[in-house]
Structures are given as structure tokens and as C-alpha cells.
Design a protein around this nucleic acid. Structure first.
Length: 582
RNA sequence: GCCCUCUUAGCUCAGCUGGAUAGAGCAACGGACUUCUAAUCCGUAGGCCGCAGGUUCGAGUCCUGCAGGGGGCGCCA
């Protein structure tokens, strides 16, 4: 039995037909014309052709491959069929400038620049809503990410997941979903006991330097600070009577809870610093205190989904698609991680979510099949719980890979990384590669404040455009009131750079939809870099503000403002600032 | 050994449901600052898309095998 792939795209409804972004709308117009032509030809069946943008702009703006698909059925050369189709095409408007048949059989369409420029009106009418959509409206989605033991501050290892998860949520929300960002604190289980022992050791060491530190303990410096606080509050009250005395359960609990509480506060601060706001924090410990664990155990026993073997309690996951059965209660009587996680997801399901998405690092992907089996066992629909598994991150500096270790003391925590390169850069770098791929985080590049750094390259577009306003007012070509753009009709924009920019901006809403659907934020950074390139090229070549040509200046200021809106909306989804000055 | 994932320019990576001559950034080389901020732009060069088969009008994309990198195969979490 093969486990299905760890990551699947969300099963979204088809994109909204009302989405009248440039390509989509023009594709619809062309599709109607082609469909009519094909109907005239009395074919045995309608081919499932595609309309797409050619790689080479010399081929036109959009192309149709219908002739290839018909070649076999009609036993004719594609080019001849394409001629036949093209000869029958009729458009109800004058926005299709040309229809050409390529020698190989593609039918190429050229779209009027006026049409593309005209699409800018939508940017100005929607403003901050430009890029949003409704195809996920009414869908309740819970996204769980960054979840971890509260045993230390967030590390750079958490960074990618934090950024990916947050951007993913923003994308789903942008397309209408009702999104809940959830953090699951694994504040129960053995790791927390180790944490308790670690804090106790640090505390005792303050009074007895020779006191041994647990072999598998948490060595980070943050525990020294917490031990100091504990010492200040409690003095020598919890020191062992003899060095070898083990702490009783009551005492250990005090250390454990003290450490967990302080560390949760550290994590909260780290998240806030990373501009990440969770809607709900769920505590593993609460699953026990609310009796959910016992309830689940009882249910599993009743339905004979669990059985005892070798003194442990096993779950029959192999009957639901997993490779083997899994232990849920160890022979020691302690539950494994799996049991509370099942109870947690049962609780999620009860909370009424249409869909649950979990983000995890690649080191957890082996865990996915048993969770899937568990969900199936509990009767939840296949696909209700989805996993987005991302690969690990490595950091390079001076061309060499940095070892991530507590001892090296360099960039171990997310907060330190942000202090070094800034939150904007950190967030951007973490999402700029597709989740499936390993991410090489180049610290030298991240620190650079130049064109080599894609973050500044994008932000600079926004700053440049904002800076045009005072210039325009001073040149007396514009009053600086953006509200006037809403019904503005530019008539002088016809440069190639202007049309290219307009076409790209018109694709933004469809792109956001596609990125949300594919759970692939890196496509958004790619889009924004292209937007930036098109803007900078235009700006470099054509003067925007020219007191000798006020009308043209206004047209260009209008277009620049559209670019500002699109860039700002894109950066907003990424959680990155759009500076007015740089 | 089994499972997942990745392999595209010197480096880091795009490539949407299979479509035309495979793209971008960095690095290299050559140019553009009396300017609306050069944190910018223009140009040149750089490729058996890991290898071998298969599917078809057409494969970087789908299938199979092989090689290499990463991850996982606990009564850890």
C-alpha cells in the first residue's frame, strides 16, 4: 500500500466565471468565437482545446491549439484545419487586432493594446480589493502551522513554516475563505518533562555549580535566564535536600509549568515580531483535562479499532491505509504523540471546519499516512485533512553552509535572523521557493540593500511611485488626489512598455486565484518581481511627470498608481511592508 | 532494504491542466547618472532540462527503470 502524496492542492471550485481579468475575459471571448466556428464545422466531437499565452510574444498574445487535436480525427494537416477554423471566426468587438495561422497549426491572436489599457479601470475601482475573489466564499478552513513543543524560542527552522503558513492563509482569505490560523502547543508529553528537568538543573546549578545537567536536556541560554527569574521568585525553596535526590512529581510539575509559561511568552513575542497573528492557540494539555483523550480511547475500544499487544495499546491503522498498526498507549501507560493528535483533530472536526490544512517540515512526512488512516477511521471525508509538507532550509554565508547549532550561537533563533536581515526580507526569502524544494537562504544576499535583493527591488517600485506625487504637484500636472483616478480614462498610453505593464497587472486577480489553489506562494513573489521589472523598465525609458505635457503626465501617473496598488496588494499578502520612501 | 521528495545556465531557481526556438535573478563581460531616488535600466555571453527507454501529432512536463542529493521508516515528538 502506497501512501498518497503528502501534499495535495486544495480541491477548489472552478474559478469564478465573473473574474474578468484580462486574459480570462479575453480567453472567454475567443473561446466563444472558436466554439461557434467549430460548431459550424459539424465535427463528430468538440475538441478539448486550450487557450494560452505563447512563450514567444512574436506569436501573439493568445494561441489556440484546437487544430492539433482535430488532425487525427479529420486526417488532415493541422495547418489546413487551423485555416478552416480561422476563416470562420467572428468577434463582436474590435479588440482582436489580428488572427493568424502559424505554419504548424496554431491559431494566434493579437489583442488590442486599448483593451489591455482599459482593464486598468478595474484596478482603480477595486483598489485594495483588487486581486481578491469569491470562489472560496463560505468555506471554513483551519490552517495549523508552526505547532511545536514550547521548549524554546522559535528557531530559524520554524521560519519557513511560519512564513508559508501565514501567506497561505492570506491567499485563501483573499479568495473568500473563512480562515482560522491555529497554533497547537504540544505542552504535554515527555519533552515537557525533559524541559522541567532542564530548568531544575539550571536552577540548582545557580547554587551548586557541579550539579549535573540532564544528558538530553535543553541547553539553550534562554533557560539560564528563566532559571534566574525562578531563583529570584523562589529562592532556595526547591533545592534538593541531597544532590542525588530526584524531584517528586509535584516539584517537577512546578518547574515544568514555570518553564512552559515563560517560553510560551517568548514564542508569542517571536510571532508578534514576525508579524504573525494566530486566531486560536490550542493546548495539548487541555485535551487531557477536558477528558477528550479518555473519550477517544473509549470510542476506539468500543468499536474495536484498538487492541492490546505486548502491554501496549495499538490502533488498527493498517486496515485504513497505513503500512502498519501504531501504538497509541505505551506499555508504560503513557500515550504516544499520535493519540492526542487524533483527539485534537477530532475536536477540530467538531468545530465545524470544512477543511483542515496542516503544515509540517519534511521530517514529519512519514507521520502523514497514519494520520490519514486515523481520519478515515473516525469517519471523516477523504481530503478533509490536508498536509502541506515543506522541505528544509539551509543557510549560507560567504558561500559556505552554516551549521545550525545552539553552540555556534549564530542565527539560531528566528528573532535573531529578523534582527539581522529584517522581517520583510526574512518573510520574502522563506516563501520565494516552492515548498517541495529545499531552500537555500543566502544570508549575504539577504543583507544586501541593492538591486540584487528581490525584496528591495519590489519595494522600490512602491517607493518610486509614491515619490511621484510631490513631483507631479510641483510640476502642476496633477492635484495629488487619487480619488480622481476612479473614473479616469487614459487616452495616450500606447508605448510597448505601457501595454506590457497593463497586461501584467490585468492578470493579477487570476494569478492570486491560481496561487491560492496551488498552495504555492512562490508564484506570487515571481509575479511581483516581473511586475517590478516591467515597471522599472517603463519608468527608466519614459518620463512620467513632464510639465510640458500635462495630459500625458496624468495618463502615466494614473498607470503608475495602478502599479502601486497591485504591488501593495501583493506585498500585503506576503506580509511585507510597502514603504513610501526608501 | 522499503517509502516520500528533489535533479533545468557557473550559482540560486521559475516553467500553470503536455504545445511553437526552455525563461528569470545573481555571478562574468560591455554600456547608461546636469534625473521623477542609479535600491534603476539597456546589451553580450552562458543549456544532451541527471541518464535510458516508453506513451503521441508534440515531453522539461505523463509512465517505467537507473544514478545522485535531502528526508522518513520508534512503545520519539
Amino acid at each position: 500500500m502506497l501512501p498518497s502524496p503528502a501534499c495535495c492542492p486544495l480541491p477548489l471550485p472552478a474559478a469564478d466565471a465573473q473574474d474578468n481579468s484580462q486574459t480570462r475575459d479575453m480567453k472567454e471571448i475567443i473561446r466563444q468565437a472558436v466554439d461557434r466556428a467549430l460548431a459550424e464545422m459539424q465535427l463528430p466531437e468538440k475538441p478539448d482545446y486550450v487557450i494560452e499565452k505563447p512563450n514567444d510574444p512574436a506569436h501573439g498574445d493568445l494561441a489556440v491549439n484546437a487544430a492539433f487535436l482535430l488532425a487525427r480525427v479529420l486526417r488532415k494537416r493541422p495547418a489546413l484545419i487551423a485555416e478552416d477554423i480561422a476563416g470562420r471566426l467572428q468577434f463582436g468587438n474590435d479588440y482582436v487586432d489580428s488572427v493568424e495561422v502559424a505554419p504548424n497549426g496554431f491559431i494566434n491572436f493579437r489583442i488590442s493594446p486599448r483593451w489591455s489599457i482599459g482593464q486598468l479601470a478595474r484596478v482603480q475601482s477595486e483598489l485594495e480589493r483588487y486581486g481578491r475573489g469569491e470562489e472560496l466564499a463560505g468555506r471554513k478552513v483551519i490552517v495549523e502551522f508552526v505547532s511545536s513543543n514550547p521548549t524554546g524560542p522559535l528557531t530559524i527552522g520554524h521560519g519557513r513554516q511560519a512564513a508559508l503558513g501565514d501567506v497561505l492563509c492570506s491567499l485563501l482569505a483573499a479568495r473568500g475563505a473563512d480562515v482560522t490560523r491555529e497554533y497547537y502547543y504540544n505542552d504535554a508529553g515527555n519533552q515537557m518533562n525533559i524541559l522541567g528537568h532542564s530548568l531544575r538543573a539550571r536552577y540548582v546549578q545557580r547554587h551548586d555549580a557541579d550539579f549535573p545537567f540532564p544528558e538530553n536536556g535543553y541547553q539553550g541560554d534562554y533557560l539560564l535566564a528563566i532559571a534566574e527569574q525562578f531563583d529570584n521568585e523562589h529562592g532556595d525553596k526547591y533545592l534538593p535536600a541531597a544532590p542525588d535526590d530526584a524531584p517528586d512529581e509535584q516539584t517537577l510539575r512546578i518547574f515544568r509549568e514555570y518553564a512552559a509559561e515563560r517560553i510560551r511568552r517568548m514564542i508569542d513575542a517571536d510571532l508578534q515580531n514576525f508579524r504573525l497573528r494566530f486566531d486560536v492557540w490550542s493546548l495539548e494539555s487541555r485535551l487531557y483535562s477536558e477528558g477528550r483523550i479518555d473519550k477517544l480511547l473509549e470510542l476506539l475500544r468500543e468499536q474495536e479499532l484498538s487492541y492490546e499487544k505486548d502491554g501496549a495499546l495499538w490502533l488498527r491503522t493498517s486496515e485504513f491505509g497505513d503500512d502498519e498498526d501504531r501504538v497509541i498507549v505505551k506499555s508504560t501507560g503513557e500515550p504516544t504523540y499520535f493519540l492526542p493528535d487524533l483527539a485534537y483533530h477530532a475536536a477540530k472536526h467538531e468545530r465545524g471546519f470544512d477543511e483542515a490544512v496542516n503544515l509540517h517540515g519534511a521530517d514529519h512526512h512519514g507521520y502523514v499516512p497514519r494520520m490519514r488512516a486515523g481520519m478515515k477511521m473516525l469517519g471523516y471525508p477523504a481530503g478533509w485533512l490536508r498536509y502541506l509538507i515543506h522541505q528544509m532550509v539551509s543557510f549560507t554565508e560567504d558561500g559556505e553552509q552554516i551549521k545550525m547549532s545552539t553552540r555556534s550561537g549564530k542565527f539560531v533563533t528566528l528573532a535573531e535572523l529578523c534582527r539581522e536581515v529584517g522581517v520583510d526580507v526574512a518573510r520574502y526569502f522563506f516563501v520565494m521557493r516552492k515548498a517541495d524544494s529545499h531552500l537555500v537562504f543566502d544570508l549575504d544576499l539577504a543583507r544586501k540593500q541593492s538591486n540584487e535583493n528581490p525584496v528591495y527591488y519590489c519595494q522600490y517600485v512602491h517607493a518610486r511611485i509614491c515619490n511621484l506625487t510631490p513631483t507631479a504637484i510641483e510640476a502642476d500636472v496633477w492635484d495629488g488626489d487619487r480619488s480622481g483616478w476612479r473614473d479616469y480614462k487614459p487616452g495616450l498610453l500606447d508605448k510597448a512598455e505601457e501595454v506590457n505593464l497593463a497586461v501584467h497587472m490585468a492578470e493579477f486577480p487570476a494569478l492570486v486565484g491560481r496561487v491560492a489553489h496551488a498552495l504555492a506562494p512562490h508564484l506570487l513573489t515571481e509575479y511581483l518581481e516581473e511586475l517590478a521589472a516591467l515597471f522599472h523598465a517603463w519608468y527608466q525609458k519614459h518620463r512620467i511627470v513632464d510639465s510640458a505635457a500635462p495630459e500625458l503626465s496624468r495618463d502615466r501617473l494614473y498607470m503608475a498608481d495602478c502599479a502601486r496598488v497591485v504591488m501593495a496588494n501583493g506585498l500585503k499578502i506576503l506580509g511585507i511592508t510597502a514603504p513610501e520612501k526608501m
